[in-house]
Design a protein around this nucleic acid. Structure first.
Lengths: 242, 242
DNA sequence: CGTGCCCTCGCCATTTCCGGGGAGGAGGAT
DNA sequence: ATCCTCCTCCCCGGAAATGGCGAGGGCACG
């Protein structure tokens, strides 16, 4: 358990971050940051559009493995809560009402994650979604003061971290992020809001066959196995909005 | 044409921004900011999920009208360029190679937009995308120095602007967000990653019919018209993650 | 102890989707 | 001028999804 240190000088931190040349440097940087801020854990992680998880941080390895094995990504209130928000959020303000969520929290604390947490959602191109998280064990009042004091610096840190991570992202190559044509976007959007092909074609005033061509083309561009998959990918890559 | 002023004190700016209670206050704030930074124009604008454009800023009204009428949104290299990026970008670094883009730039400058520009992309939940832009008329060197100096403060300003804008956004209405059962989440997730019903049922070691029941149940809870619609809704509500 | 929700399974008819063909015109980019 | 992408339209057969019928056991909450 750390004792929350004084806010370190941001310029130096950002400068060192900007020199990072690989994920290893980010890992070193985040460990230093953790020490500078005097918190137990600092983590940056994200899910690529292909579903793989990447990240760096100071969580114990067995907790990370457990998280992945148990599929905690799908029930973690931090993830689902931040996914709906734009601004940073204190873990206490998330919805822990479900049984699974409380069990998850117990498990997390049992593996060394702090009882306090503060997570900043970050969104990038193509639906990229990342989280920059601080966690420690302390009182509510202490944590409140700490997060209020450092909120702005942490937002910037999250921003720069993500910028670096995007540079290094391994899935940059197999994820060409091929753009959809306007018609394809319209077609996919209509399907995403529940229209069937006949309705969608009617809405666009084109034949159903033409609409199919768009959907097939979009499916191909997105590397999707079927229409539902294509819509899901288009959504999570931010190519369409519902 | 302004002469680039010294960086104003960020704390005061952000505090006043946090007091804003409506779009009108944001408009006042952005005008003050423009004056504080000594640039010609400062603009924040975004496209809502329903496709409508909102914003506030200091562009001349006839330029804004022309922008909307001519559908410049679709050819503006600032928009399309920032849509692919995460970090702030100087307009000079964008792709102005197409004929339409150069004509657009001429038109913009002719309507009082500066020859220099700096735009920060911002992304929020549900595919929200916004731009925070500064523009002025000055030399490349001056602009370079100005943006380098104020880069971090501007990122924070953009962040806080967007946070306020999200609060004010109309149609932030009810999102009942009925929870899905664990099995339903698993089923929907498998469909979202491209499995067909047989594969998904096999993966979950249940009969295909049982899987169908989950999907139907989820579809009902989500108020969706079909499976694709249900997956789209589950995704955009953050109930499943792909 | 009923009521409701969750999990599990089966059959049938109808609708819809999928994937494989082919074909022509319009517009922009090199 | 030529290539490429986009937009538009058409046919067909097999595969998959949908909707509606039914059934039973478990678990929790009041």
């Amino acid at each position: 358990m750390g004792f929350l240190g004084n806010a370190p000088h941001l310029d130096g931190l950002l400068e060192r971050l900007e020199c990072a040349e690989g994920l290893e440097d980010l890992q070193i940087a985040i460990e230093d940051l953790r020490d500078s801020y005097g918190v137990d854990h600092m983590v940056y992680h994200w899910v690529s559009s292909s579903g793989e998880q990447y990240g760096c941080g100071t969580y114990p390895l067995d907790w990370i493995n457990r998280y992945v094995e148990k599929g905690y990504l799908r029930i973690d209130p931090v993830v689902s809560g931040c996914y709906q928000r734009f601004h940073p959020v204190d873990w206490k303000r998330l919805d822990w009402s479900s049984k699974a969520a409380r069990a998850f929290l117990q498990d997390a604390i049992g593996h060394g994650v702090g009882n306090q947490g503060f997570s900043i959602p970050i969104r990038g191109p193509n639906g990229q979604f990342a989280l920059f998280t601080l966690s420690t064990t302390c009182s509510d009042a202490e944590w409140e003061e700490f997060t209020e004091t450092n909120r702005r610096d942490l937002i910037l840190l999250a921003h720069y971290f993500n910028q670096k991570a995007l540079e290094f992202e391994p899935g940059r190559a197999p994820d060409p992020a091929q753009p959809l044509s306007p018609r394809e976007i319209e077609a996919m959007t209509l399907l995403a809001i529940g229209y069937n092909r006949a309705q969608a074609a009617d809405t666009l005033s084109i034949s159903e066959h033409t609409l199919r061509v768009y959907v097939e083309s979009a499916r191909f561009k997105l590397g999707a196995l079927n229409t539902t998959h294509a819509v899901a990918r288009a959504l999570s890559r931010g190519l369409i909005v519902v």
